[in-house]
């Protein structure tokens, strides 16, 4: 456990690992994206109730899922940073925040463009939509805090505390469709034993979830490397790395 911590807590190790993983994650992401889009937009049949408008699901559900997944990663690494003072955990949290905010924005925007033709409104202040909007503000608040405090150390601690406290919003988002009356339809794919979708529609959805997941990890590798270099720019391993680079 502590050996594992030690390795991942080491900046040069993480920098090299991220550099090695990134091209694979990016390539696999493109593959699943192309397959998912083709199966979802071309092959899958239209819905018998919603017609072709339901095809927004292939970006809306993966983005909404990722908005919560990324937040849980951010809150967990923030907790690790607060408890064990592991700087690389803070790097992962900070690298995740803009990606999570982008996924949340995508979920809100695509939801709006789906809600207009189906519910007749772009927006409604119901539990699901409001808690997802709150998630966007949590991401933005986290990023704003990083820049607002005088020393980077206290900014990192304050933002990490916000991230950990804000995690209570995640179960609220997830269960909002069960706890409150809402226009939003209940979960589509979490009932895998009794899926409410035909396989020809479900397969592209799962592929798109995979593509978005890979997109996050690909982007996380890139952003983590940037933050490590910014933090460790004067370390000896960076100088060695720079010496090895031909220019």
């Amino acid at each position: 456990m502590f050996q594992w911590f030690h390795r991942f807590g080491s900046a040069p190790y993480l920098y090299r690992l991220a550099g090695r993983l990134a091209p694979w994650l990016g390539g696999l992401c493109l593959l699943s994206l192309v397959a998912g889009l083709y199966l979802g937009l071309v092959v899958a049949p239209a819905d018998y109730e919603q017609g072709d408008s339901y095809r927004i699901i292939y970006i809306h559900v993966p983005a909404a899922w990722m908005s919560m997944f990324v937040y849980v990663v951010m809150a967990t690494s923030s907790a690790v940073f607060l408890i064990w003072r592991l700087k690389m955990a803070d790097v992962v949290a900070l690298a995740s925040a803009p990606i999570g905010a982008a996924f949340t924005a995508v979920a809100l925007i695509t939801g709006s463009f789906w809600g207009k033709p189906m519910w007749g409104t772009w927006w409604i202040w119901d539990a699901r939509l409001t808690s997802e909007l709150l998630l966007l503000f949590l991401y933005l608040g986290y990023l704003a805090l990083r820049g607002a405090l005088e020393t980077p150390q206290s900014a990192a601690r304050a933002a990490a505390i916000l991230a950990v406290v804000g995690v209570v919003n995640i179960p609220i988002i997830h269960y909002s469709v069960e706890w409150w009356n809402t226009l939003h339809q209940p979960a589509t794919i979490t009932k895998l034993d009794k899926p409410s979708m035909h396989i020809s529609m479900l397969r592209p959805l799962l592929l798109m979830v995979l593509a978005f997941q890979l997109l996050y990890f690909y982007n996380l590798m890139i952003r983590t490397r940037t933050l490590i270099l910014e933090k460790e720019g004067r370390a000896r391993w960076v100088a060695e790395l720079a010496g090895g680079e031909r220019d």
Partner: peptide, 26 residues
């Protein structure tokens, strides 16, 4: 898109702008 072209393609376009944007920016 069965009459839903505006909603479907605008959703996909804005998603592409945001996600390609953050990947390129990073």
């Amino acid at each position: 898109m069965g009459g839903y072209a505006f909603y479907v393609w605008t959703s996909y376009a804005l998603t592409a702008v945001l996600l390609v944007g953050i990947v390129g920016w990073s």
